[in-house]
Design a protein around this nucleic acid. Structure first.
Length: 231
DNA sequence: CCAGACGTTGTT
DNA sequence: GTCTGG
DNA sequence: CCAGACGTTGTT
DNA sequence: GTCTGG
């Protein structure tokens, strides 16, 4: 699955990785994005006078627009690709509210003799990439809360060494199709929700500091354990 | 018709 | 054990 | 995902 | 909002 990730690239690096997308200035690097926290996502056509596509901030943990309270968001940090089309919480977002979640790595915890060791997984070289995401808007009185979830799929060979699920990563040539919801035909993008190739990724152990959701900073992604090279 | 649920992961 | 907060 | 809390009454 | 269960 995916319960913690990073987005460390600065605005100019992001602009190069996502041509045509404008990123707000002062987007500080994040080394430990946890559920309930805001993150940068790319959507098309939100808000008055929207230039599409655009980067906006949303809170991780999808709260469906019909939810009575925000608690459900805690459970909806991930959505299984296999069942998206049927689940009431995800069906409509999959059709009408898809997004790209901007990231450059994610953490998975490897179980080792009762212990949990955090591993950091990224695209080799560290370029920014995008998780497949869904979003919704929830109203808390006068306040509009935009939230998102990260879609998961089967693991590839690399991540599969520690866990059977991984976030779905959309390759750059799929960005436009994923964001284009104008056809309201999600079947046409379902094929993008496949395991990203192991050969293009790398994974290594990091400090257990990252266990604490309050931890932050570049030290979190320094290799501190075995590099895993499995494909 | 109304009431109530609506989700994922991991572990046992 | 289970829920909330980050 | 992990960390941390998990409760009531009354008084200041 | 939309679906399932009663």
């Amino acid at each position: 699955m995916c319960g913690r990730f990073t987005r460390t690239a600065d605005v100019s690096t992001l602009a190069a990785a996502f041509p045509g997308v404008e990123f707000p200035d002062g987007t500080a690097p994040r080394y430990n994005i946890a559920p309930t926290q805001p993150a940068v996502v790319i959507v098309e056509g939100i808000g008055p006078g929207a230039v599409s596509p655009r980067a906006v901030s949303m809170v991780w943990g999808l709260i469906p627009h019909w939810a009575k309270d925000r608690k459900i968001g805690h459970s909806l940090i991930n959505a299984r690709a296999e069942t998206l089309a049927e689940k009431p919480s995800f069906r409509t977002p999959f059709r009408d509210r898809r997004c790209l979640v901007v990231a450059d790595g994610f953490y998975e915890w490897r179980k080792e003799a009762g212990r949990k060791v955090p591993m950091y997984i990224r695209i080799a070289g560290g370029r920014p990439f995008a998780f497949a995401g869904l979003w919704d808007s929830w109203r808390d009185g006068a306040e509009e809360v935009r939230t998102f979830t990260i879609i998961t799929t089967a693991s590839n060979g690399l991540v599969g060494a520690i866990h059977d699920r991984m976030p779905a990563i959309i390759p750059p040539d799929g960005y436009a199709a994923w964001l284009d919801v104008s056809g309201h035909r999600p079947e046409s993008v379902f094929g993008l929700l496949v395991p990203y190739p192991s050969a293009e990724m790398e994974m290594f152990g990091v400090s257990a500091e990252v266990n604490d959701p309050r931890a932050e900073g570049p030290g979190l992604v320094v290799p501190a354990g075995p590099a895993w090279l499995i494909s």
